[in-house]
Design a protein around this nucleic acid. Structure first.
Lengths: 224, 224
DNA sequence: GCAAAAGTGTTAGGTCTACACCCATGT
DNA sequence: ACATGGGTGTAGACCTAACACTTTTGC
């Protein structure tokens, strides 16, 4: 059998800071779409798994190390790359603010964070991929505890609330949200406070992953 | 760039009859796994889309024409095929009972339906693919109206109820289920009855796809 | 007239939503 | 003392889950 399809991976990486969700994009060095912005990604090597390919490409192109990674969708339209047939397995990933800064090795001209409401024009079918990733993030954050992957290990409750508001694009009721989230029984309240300059200092919380998995195994589901 | 990865598609096709869910499997003609059962599938041609590849392979191998098709997941473990690196995009599909019979052209020895509780040993990582497909079917049937793709166009309400019971693997309350399902406002009750030999004849229903899409656009969601 | 499947309501408990005031700190 | 953000409770509406008898047909 003769087949000349090439296989690539692409990764939509989301970060959260200053109450907005951002996506990591790179500027293309070569044609097609030279100079245009694109989702990081590249061809899969013969010996590596798809996830390894994503992690390798992310490290090479942006210097970041991902925190959470899941497969999104495979894009296989024969016309999606103007030159060759390239089928791409898209992933979506989340990183914590502490890993948010791009590696010094990366030329700031080449990799940048973009707020999801202020996106540049994208290469290939990457706008479509990104749109799907955002939809998935919005859906998933309501039934799996992935929001914590976007926050530091210890966080004030208001950060979590603002994150949900940013992702879902709507206001949320502070009291009801807190009640429901704490009722899920997967957050540990620490004996530590943090002050944001003015206002009453906030208690810090941590996501208890073990407790979450235990509850999940018992059939108790996370849902906001 | 040198890359010798091959790309294939595989399709987990579900059917529903006699109150059980079945999967369509084929017997492999060649090594590896010669004589073993496998999910239908094959290599993607350079010029066709992934969906076209699935439909072509299904027609070639089993003679059936699918009713509903959606991408499931892409399996890319380097070890999944003992001979070459083959990355496979798995799909999951549903067919109506009227299309349930395998084409006469197909040797019954080569393609067969298996009740999902009585599966034979499978080739490659197909057991894993099938397991994922079942999980997806169970999840999806509760929040998208895909169950109707497994029934004839006109069906008695009890068929729908038994389908849900079969897919979810548990009993469902007849009264509550009917209330909720009819309350979604996507079923049309016909002026037609059907009798199953003994017992009171049942009214027939139809899924109203247009109404469903209209409601969906208005933000009203299907949920059981 | 009896066996078999279809059709139909009510109640109690739990969950969701809407909503406003006090608390702890910095300036 | 005032500005800022953190922390908390309740009542009404709504939804869910549990539960059993009557109706229509074939035999």
């Amino acid at each position: 059998m003769q087949q000349s399809i090439k296989l690539s991976v692409d990764a939509v990486v989301f970060g959260y800071e200053s109450e907005t969700i951002s996506v990591l994009l790179i500027r293309r060095k070569y044609d097609p779409f030279k100079g245009k912005w694109a989702i990081p990604g590249g061809f899969v090597l013969d010996s590596e798994s798809l996830e390894e390919a994503v992690e390798r490409e992310l490290k090479e192109e942006t210097g970041i190390k991902i925190n959470y990674l899941e497969q999104l969708y495979t894009f296989g339209n024969p016309e999606r790359d103007p030159r060759n047939r390239v089928v791409s397995v898209a992933y979506f990933g989340l990183i914590k603010p502490s890993a948010f800064k791009l590696a010094a090795s990366t030329d700031a001209e080449e990799a940048q964070w973009f707020t999801i409401n202020k996106l540049p024009e994208l290469s290939f079918d990457h706008a479509e991929i990104l749109k799907l990733a955002i939809t998935r993030l919005q859906a998933k954050i309501t039934y799996e505890p992935i929001g914590f992957e976007l926050l530091d290990t210890k966080f004030p409750f208001s950060d979590l609330e603002k994150l949900y508001a940013a992702v879902l694009g709507r206001e949320i009721d502070r009291r009801n949200f807190r009640k429901k989230m704490l009722g899920l029984n997967v957050l540990d309240e620490l004996d530590e406070k943090v002050s944001k300059g003015s206002g009453r200092p906030a208690n810090l919380f941590m996501f208890n992953k073990n407790r979450y998995f235990k509850l999940k195994k018992e059939g108790i589901i996370f849902e906001i």
